[in-house]
Write a protein that binds this DNA or RNA. Structure first.
Lengths: 241, 241
DNA sequence: CAGTGGTCTAGACCACCAT
DNA sequence: TGGTGGTCTAGACCACTGT
């Protein structure tokens, strides 16, 4: 797929680790051996192994080697930039998406502030409820810059907007900022989700940026308390000690 | 401090960005210029810039240059491996720590499972309530492998255990796994925190590993709903597209 | 001691952006 | 066209681990 040697090595190993072909604790071949195997230089191999290490797949120990970590990678509900569709496939659960709204609307004051645009500038508003095993537990409210996305219909909203953006529009998503907090349930939450007597709801605010640093999407993902989980892997940085 | 050239460059720039000396949107010198400035090779500079990019300080654009990002770095309450003490200093708030317990105890079944040790193996148990602006809103329950930490007294618990571990014991913390969820409040929560009529509480479970992949600490950080916030920065990986 | 990963070099070629 | 970052090379030396 990707012609870069280092990302080929990276995905070869992520695959082997995710499928269980390489199990927890297993020692990888040495950097020199992998370099020889791929007929490349050691620095290129190191680039791939560094990425594996950053993402919690392996841990490198000087003088010893690189070892596969056990990070329960199957349950990464919100880490990184993975979309709901990809997630539900990974989890293999009975999930369904109910699209409540797909419309091109002028941005409200609140949304304009989140997306750092002028009030009234057009945005695509998409409201979707996520049903897991028969219960509506997540409410996703997405807002996309209309200047970046020409058309958006309900079918793509039900399927995967990200596949459409990256596939057909070939928009390049670069990075995102996520904020998690807990707030009081709104009237809309009560109407569109199965909440019983809940008083609070987890809110994940997601700001997504393109390669050219344009902020093009703001998402508010509202999760019922008992169905929320977030997993994060972090490494100690050089500057922090 | 650190004799590595790349981490020197890294911390030079994190400092300049954090202090506002380099503001959002500013273009960094080109990689060749920085290399010349530090009398080093371009690949070494690239290593530093890559780290800056991974941690949300800058964004690199091919053909254009590297630019400082605005990631509101002052409010990173839980990202990475930063400790409460470091945080409170950064936030500059009125914070206080109440140590409720500092004891060497045999591990219970539950704790033994979390730390993957045999039931009964000795662990240091530290229970601390965190008071922010007069309200007790966070309850931290730490468990450390006693085989790794010989002594631990209440003074270090009140100050910073991490400074003690990394400074005096020179333990090297390598990575951590964090899990965030929301659960029902416990009787202990009610006793040690200012909760009013809250029914739920945010729980951050933190598993901390050393350089040799030993799991040596398990922490349960229990946050009052309204005082909890988590911020995360994520980049798109090569394998994900 | 040989083998491992960690850092660094001085080049090279490519893809993209501005002019 | 010249400048930028992205990838890659073929070496070098160092720090650490094992035997």
């Amino acid at each position: 797929m990707n012609k870069n040697i280092f990302s080929q090595i990276y995905s070869d190993y992520t695959q082997r680790i995710e499928t269980g072909l390489l199990k927890t604790g297993i020692k990888l071949p040495s950097e020199n051996e992998i370099a020889e195997e791929y007929a490349t230089s050691r620095e290129t191999v190191r680039k791939a192994l560094h990425l594996l290490s950053q993402n919690g797949y392996i841990h490198k120990i000087r003088g010893k080697g690189s070892f596969v970590l056990d990070m329960n990678r199957m349950e990464f509900p919100l880490s990184g930039l993975v979309s709901f569709k990809e997630l539900s496939e990974r989890l293999g659960r009975t999930v369904q998406t109910l699209v409540h709204e797909t419309a091109l609307v002028p941005s409200t004051q609140s949304i304009a502030r989140q997306l750092k645009i002028a009030e009234g500038e057009p945005v695509w508003k998409v409201v979707r409820a996520r049903e897991i095993e028969g219960e509506k537990v997540i409410l996703d409210k997405d807002y996309f810059l209309a200047s970046v996305i020409p058309v958006l219909n309900e079918d793509t909203a039900r399927d995967s907007i990200y596949a459409y953006l990256e596939g057909e529009l070939s928009l390049k998503i670069a990075y995102a900022k996520k904020e998690i907090s807990v707030e009081k349930v709104s009237e809309e939450d009560r109407r569109l989700l199965d909440l019983a007597r809940d008083t609070h709801i987890v809110i994940v605010r997601n700001y997504v940026y393109l390669e050219d640093t344009t902020l093009f999407q703001y998402t508010e993902s509202r999760h019922r308390l008992d169905k929320f989980q977030f997993v994060d892997f972090a490494r100690r940085n050089p500057g922090e000690e």
